[in-house]
Lab assay of single mutants.
Amino acid sequence: AFSSEQLARLKREFNENRYLTERRRQQLSSELGLNEAQIKIWFQNKRA
């Protein structure tokens, strides 16, 4: 489960760009304390 802070950040990123570069995913992973797979799957689900 994502914290409300993490979700807000993911939604902001998604609004700016529906697709993440690998580098951006790595940055978000480290900033949010999530693993890259969690972020990747969140974006895939959000696009679906």
Rank of each mutant, 00 (worst) to 15 (best):
S3Q: 04
A1S: 10
E22S: 12
S4W: 09
K40W: 12
S3L: 04
R23D: 14
E31M: 05
S4R: 12
Q27V: 09
I41E: 15
F43H: 00
E5C: 08
S4K: 14
Y19E: 10
A37Q: 14
L7S: 05
Q44C: 08
L34P: 01
R9D: 03
Q26F: 07
A37G: 09
Q26R: 15
Y19K: 05
T21D: 12
E36M: 05
L34N: 01
A37D: 15
A8H: 07
N35K: 08
Y19M: 06
Y19C: 07
I41K: 12
N17G: 05
E31K: 03
Q6T: 07
S3A: 04
N17A: 05
A8W: 06
N15I: 09
A8D: 14
A1D: 14
N17W: 05
F14W: 11
R12V: 10
Q27H: 07
E36H: 05
A8S: 09
S30E: 14
R24A: 07
L28T: 01
S30D: 10
S29T: 05
K46S: 13
R18W: 08
A37R: 12
E5W: 13
E36A: 08
Y19R: 06
N15F: 09
L7C: 08
R23T: 14
R47N: 14
L20T: 02
A8M: 09
E13K: 02
L32F: 03
F14L: 03
R47H: 11
L7H: 06
R47K: 06
I41C: 09
E5P: 04
Q44G: 05
I39G: 00
E31I: 06
Y19L: 07
K11S: 13
S29F: 03
E16F: 08
Q26C: 06
R24I: 07
E16K: 14
L7V: 08
Q27P: 01
S29Y: 03
Q26T: 08
R12E: 14
R25L: 15
I39R: 00
E5N: 06
S4Y: 11
T21G: 07
L32K: 00
S3R: 04
A37T: 14
Q6D: 04
E22M: 08
L10T: 00
E16H: 09
R23V: 14
L32E: 01
S3E: 03
L7K: 05
K40G: 10
R12M: 11
I39Q: 02
N35V: 07
N15A: 14
A48S: 09
N17T: 06
R24H: 06
Q26N: 07
I41H: 09
F43W: 15
E5V: 08
N45E: 15
R25H: 05
N35F: 07
S4A: 13
R25D: 01
I39V: 10
E36N: 04
F14I: 03
Q44I: 09
R9E: 07
A8Q: 10
L20K: 01
A37W: 15
Q6A: 07
R18H: 11
Q6I: 11
I41L: 13
R47Q: 13
S3N: 11
S30F: 13
E16N: 09
E22P: 15
L28H: 00
N45V: 09
I39K: 01
L10V: 01
N15Q: 12
R9M: 08
S29L: 02
K11N: 15
S29M: 06
L28Q: 00
F43R: 00
A48E: 13
G33E: 05
R25C: 15
L28M: 04
F2Y: 08
Q44L: 08
S4I: 11
E31W: 04
R23P: 09
Q26M: 12
R9W: 05
S30M: 14
R25N: 11
R9T: 08
Q44P: 02
G33M: 06
S3H: 03
Q38G: 03
A1K: 11
A1Q: 13
N45M: 11
E36V: 11
G33C: 12
L28I: 06
R23A: 14
I41P: 00
L32Y: 02
I39D: 00
R25V: 15
F14S: 02
R18M: 12
A37S: 13
E5F: 09
R18L: 04
A48V: 10
E22H: 13
Q6Y: 02
A37Y: 13
N45D: 11
S30A: 15
Q27F: 08
L7T: 07
Q6M: 06
A8F: 05
I39H: 00
I39W: 03
F2L: 12
Q26E: 08
F2G: 01
N35E: 14
E31C: 05
W42N: 00
E36F: 05
F2W: 06
E16G: 05
E31P: 00
S4G: 12
Q38N: 05
K11P: 01
L34G: 01
K46H: 12
Y19W: 11
R25W: 10
A48N: 11
R12W: 11
A37F: 12
Q38T: 11
E13V: 05
Q27D: 08
Q38H: 07
A48F: 08
F2E: 02
Q6P: 01
A37M: 15
N45W: 13
S4M: 10
I39L: 07
E22W: 09
F2C: 03
R9Y: 06
R18I: 09
L28V: 02
N45F: 08
Q6N: 04
Q44W: 09
L34A: 04
E31L: 06
F14M: 02
K40V: 14
K11A: 14
E31Q: 06
F2A: 02
G33D: 07
A37E: 15
Q26L: 12
S29C: 08
R24M: 09
W42T: 00
S29D: 01
S30R: 14
G33F: 04
E22Q: 12
R47W: 13
R25M: 15
L10K: 00
K40H: 15
K40L: 14
W42G: 00
N35L: 09
L10N: 01
K40M: 15
G33T: 04
L32N: 01
R12N: 08
R23M: 13
F43E: 02
Q27N: 07
N35T: 15
R23S: 14
L10F: 02
W42H: 02
L34T: 03
L10C: 02
R47P: 04
Q6H: 05
Y19I: 11
A1T: 13
E31V: 04
E13Y: 05
Q26P: 01
Q27I: 10
S29A: 15
R24V: 10
I39C: 02
F2K: 02
L20M: 05
L7R: 08
K40F: 15
K40S: 15
E5H: 09
N45P: 02
R47F: 10
I39Y: 01
S3C: 03
A8Y: 06
E36K: 05
N45Y: 08
Q27T: 09
R12G: 06
E5Q: 08
E36C: 05
R23L: 14
E5R: 07
Q26K: 14
